[in-house]
Simulated scan of single mutants.
Amino acid sequence: MANGVQEYLDFVLPLVKDAGKELVSAKDYEVEFKGEDFDVVTIYDRKIEDILIKKLKERWPDHKFIGEEESYINGVSELTNSPTWIIDPIDGTANFVRGLKDSCISIGLVINKEQTLGVVYNPFMNELYTAIQGQGAFLNGNRIVTNGATDIKKSVLNYEISLAVSSKYYELYMYRLKHLLKHIGGIRSMGSAVMGLCYVASGRMEAYQCDGLYPWDAAAGVLIVREAGGYVCDSRGGEFNLMDPNFLATATKNLSEKFMEIERKADEERENNRIKERKFQI
């Protein structure tokens, strides 16, 4: 298996780097919206995804594919035991269109329903993150590990609060934020789920959290965090589910438990207030 995965990595790396050149040179493009006012897409999202999938299909025609733009139109397929490439052509498109550098190309490979390979490339910072299951995580070829943090009071949380603009997630995010701010050392919101995960893996952040995402937001980054020694769980409690990713990623399991204890109290308060409101309406 290991030799086969290395072959996949060796093949996909030049594709990712070529796609990065397309991003860096992008100009004069229109911005479109995909339903929500904050969910933007450009021709480069579609162009890069098409290029990557086309090349991979030519090399491995029996493999399966899940891509952000393709899946938005056609629906997300369920995972099978077949090798499945999960692609986000531009994670952080809202950053990209504003000239901010926190955006990247993300490719994950799942085999037998297990995250096996992760590649994340930020061409604006010339940062290439890679991981193969069981072989560690790397940044530009150098081994990376999380910073090993366990003290929540000294931890900086990268919290994707921008999703709170959606009415579906507003209460969830705001209740948790209210509770977390009393205990953490700082907060950031970077606008890219994949980069947020990689920042935990490389030790730049102690924790990253985002709810309401899609497989392509987590297929590469979650593996990179785990291979760097970090911990990822479902923010609702329980095991992380790639096909329904609501995740908390932390430098250590110990730190995750401290975050989750606080968030469970926030979720309980939110539910109790909902019950009170329903009783009042009756």
Rank of each mutant, 00 (worst) to 15 (best):
R204V: 11
K178F: 14
M190C: 11
Y175I: 06
M190T: 15
M195D: 12
A193Y: 00
Y208W: 12
H179K: 14
Q209H: 13
G203T: 06
G185W: 10
H183G: 04
Y175E: 13
A193F: 05
Y208G: 02
G185C: 10
K178T: 13
S202H: 01
A207G: 06
L197P: 00
H183D: 08
A201T: 11
A207N: 06
R176F: 07
S202W: 01
G185Y: 11
L181V: 11
G196W: 01
L177Q: 10
I187W: 01
S189A: 15
G196N: 07
L181I: 11
V200K: 00
D211Y: 13
V200P: 00
H183M: 07
H183Q: 12
K178H: 13
D211H: 13
K178Q: 14
D211E: 14
A201Q: 06
S189M: 09
V194K: 02
H183V: 05
K178N: 14
D211R: 11
H179Y: 15
E206V: 03
M205S: 04
H183P: 02
L177I: 08
L177S: 09
D211C: 13
G185S: 09
K178E: 15
L180K: 04
Y199Q: 15
D211P: 08
R176P: 03
K178R: 15
S192H: 06
G185P: 07
I187F: 01
V200G: 01
G186M: 05
K182V: 04
Q209N: 13
M190H: 09
L180F: 03
A207E: 06
R176W: 06
K182H: 09
I187S: 06
G186L: 04
S192Y: 06
K182T: 07
A207V: 03
G203R: 02
Y208E: 09
K178C: 11
L177G: 04
E206W: 01
S192V: 09
Y199P: 05
M205H: 10
V200E: 00
G191K: 03
L197A: 02
S202I: 01
L197T: 01
G191D: 05
R204T: 08
R188M: 07
H179M: 10
R176Y: 09
K178V: 13
D211F: 14
D211K: 12
Y175M: 10
H183T: 05
Y175F: 15
G203K: 03
G186Q: 05
L197R: 00
V200T: 02
H179W: 13
C198F: 08
L177Y: 08
C198Q: 08
R176K: 12
I184M: 04
L177H: 10
A193S: 13
C210G: 08
K182I: 04
R176D: 07
L181S: 11
H179S: 13
E206Q: 13
D211W: 13
A193R: 01
G191I: 02
S202N: 12
A193D: 08
E206G: 05
M195Y: 12
M195S: 14
V200F: 04
L177E: 06
G186N: 07
I187D: 03
S192K: 01
I187T: 08
L197Y: 00
G196D: 04
A201R: 08
I184E: 02
Q209R: 10
M190P: 05
C198H: 08
D211V: 15
C210F: 10
Y208V: 07
G191E: 02
L180T: 00
H183F: 11
